[in-house]
Nucleic acid binder design. Structure first.
Lengths: 213, 213
DNA sequence: TAGAAAATCCCTGAAAAGGGTGATTTTGTG
DNA sequence: CACAAAATCACCCTTTTCAGGGATTTTCTA
């Protein structure tokens, strides 16, 4: 562990960026060596001298998940901490696969932030108790219900897209030049694949997984 | 205008709260007189000595819109500035109806934040150029297409909530202890209010407007 | 307190969606 | 090529949704 830690901040909200900087500037053992408001810019500015990258998850263009992957590819020794608004197991899962070193919630206190920075720059990973709990819950769920990413076929996605557009089965059939029976088949297959009970479930799935457009 | 402005911060994200505090503490003409992580707490802590309240929009229990209304009711002379992630005309509209004095985006810079604080404590309102533009665009839209914010009643929202939960009309009727006819009425009224063609449209509206839970 | 808005209930009939089952043809990949 | 997955179509039958009326009671609010 070095005496003064070199931190790089990445967040698309300037105000949060400035706030974090001001907060961390009060800490003697920490130096802010740079800031960026998006992943692309950060990738250009970060070099191997950086100790810890603090990043937001939801960013335009390159999101936190992708950004973490890229930065780890370029500089495997840099420690990365994600700061997220939501305690979301899916996101965390993807980040862990990308070898993230820490995950903090935005409602964490200053002390926790500092502890996280210290921990990861010592070469350990830092995840708050709250985050660990949600993650383990999600692992437990996965083991018991072998749901695992339901895959919709290309055609099914097309049909789903038209359902989202509020078209009826008949209209979808006409639009895709297939019979109503076929559309109904696709619809029924999707219902069973997704474990949905009706159209509402299909639409929810589509919107939650950004398959809308 | 007083020499040192008394600022109160409200945000459910501790980290943002701490960051803002640190940021504003560097400014000589500003004193942070208090912080709260939700509207309820803030309402208890704020007194008439406060000059400016800086608040987040998305907060649990009492959201920023409601909080602003309440604080203005209690202390009409306190100046309020909302800090929001999104440049959303609908939210802004509601805030303006609640006599908010300023609206900033989270990607605003420190200087803009300070300017906003100065402006509102001088008794003027502050809205960034970006925000003003979106708001005017939305006014323009409203004049041409008389869509006007479709308002769903309390009961309609309840029914919609159950539709999102994939319940059928019959099940909703049983759950809410009303007749199927009534549920159908609510459903039909929502379809026409929202200009939706079917369930898919209702679900889309609900999810897009975060009425889900 | 009068009027509006919301919530409640009812009816009919048509269209759409959903459940079950089965079969053929296309397409893609090892 | 062989096998699997995807896409296609079909039939039956039930339930749900949607469209169109109309009506009464409750609640809110100017």
């Amino acid at each position: 562990m070095k005496n003064t830690k070199k931190i790089f901040l990445v967040d698309d909200h300037q105000m949060f960026l400035d706030g974090l900087e001001s907060l961390l500037n009060d800490v003697k053992t920490i130096t802010i060596v740079g800031k960026a408001s998006n992943g692309k810019e950060a990738l250009e500015l970060i070099d191997k001298s950086v100790d810890v990258v603090l990043m937001d998850i939801s960013m335009p263009e390159i999101d936190g998940i992708e950004f973490n992957r890229l930065i780890k590819l370029k500089y495997p020794d840099i420690n990365t901490i994600a700061i997220s608004m939501h305690n979301d197991a899916k996101i965390l899962d993807k980040l862990i696969r990308g070898n993230i070193n820490g995950y903090l919630l935005k409602n964490a206190e200053k002390n926790e932030l500092l502890e996280a920075i210290n921990t990861v720059s010592d070469g350990d990973n830092y995840f708050s108790e709250e985050v660990k709990r949600t993650y383990q819950d999600s692992l437990f769920k996965r083991e018991n219900t072998q749901d695992q990413a339901p895959q919709l076929s290309k055609r099914e996605l097309e049909v789903l897209g038209e359902i989202i557009n509020e078209l009826t089965t008949k209209e979808i059939a006409e639009k895709l030049f297939i019979s109503q029976h076929t559309v109904e088949s696709h619809r029924k297959n999707m219902l069973s694949k997704l474990g949905a009970r009706n159209t509402a479930g299909l639409v929810k799935y589509a919107l939650e997984n950004r398959l809308s457009n």
